[in-house]
Amino acid sequence: MSGGVLLQAVVSGLAVGAVYALVGLGFTLVWSMTRVLALAHGDVVVAAALTAVLVVVGRTPVASSLGAGRSIAVVVLALGVGIALSVATYVVAVRPFLDRAHRSEDVLGWVAGGVTAGLVVRTALALALPAAAYAVPDPLHLDALSTNGTVGLPGGGTVPVRVFPVLAVALLVAVGTDLFISRSRFGRAMRAVADDVDAAALCGVSLERTVLSAFVIAGSLAAVAGLLDAPGRLVAVDSGVTLGLAGAAAAVLGRLGSPQGAVVGGLALGVAQQLVALSAHLGPGWAAALPPAVLVVVLAVRPGGLRSGRQAAVE
């Protein structure tokens, strides 16, 4: 692999990884608040982007250019759908299976709830959007930053110009979320709940409100990830699951429950995936298999990655 290709892989990998980081951040946030895996999180990402486009542009979205009004509408709608779906998943599919009073949980129940929520979202989307894949217009007009939408890199490689703003926006949002969690009063409440549900409740933290707001944040992150990711490629209804698995892999790589870990894990996974995709021996097939493979292998080799404070404290 020549230096130019290497640079191209790293730059585009960072942009892909930044999206994974946003998805993984939501995933990790949900885990630390509820000790539940957001198995439908990737579907929320794709559903947010596709639903917004579906409503604003119509059933046959094309990569057309959107005016200012419709661009804003897409962004607002995506955020709304992302938040609504994330919260709805929690209320309908997860909460009924958590019994905080007894600290016992119905694992089979919430796993089934999560995969059902994902399946319902995918099926509903597929009924509305029957084609195999869609090109989604970009409400942020990131391609317009250069004349032909690409940028030449030193060494001869080229990358789409959008990777730079995608990387910048995703990292800004990720860092902002992390700061919000570590600095704000509300973030303190969230960390208190993540650390010890009972103690937080005794200190006057409203448990339900805090957990719900974590799902609101996860939903917004999902919407941002969808808006950044979807216009760059063809989006199929099922790509939500693969994106969700990549986010989960990012979160697990960075040790589940750690926001910074999810961001670092996402960036690392994105770069690794692009390196594999551009390598002469491996190619895109292997790149597609990388996130779920990483997930399975990391969980099997280092299952402790899922162990966190509260799990140990359960006795």
Binding site: V111, L245, A248, A289, P292, R307
Partner: peptide, 27 residues
């Protein structure tokens, strides 16, 4: 895959097997 089942957390097993289902399909 059974190694992914940690002592206490069933959650890791759900994630690992769900990942495996998609890994097989992607391959």
């Amino acid at each position: 895959v059974g190694f992914a089942a940690t002592r206490l957390a069933g959650a890791s097993l759900a994630l690992a097997t769900w990942g495996l289902a998609w890994l097989a399909y992607v391959v």
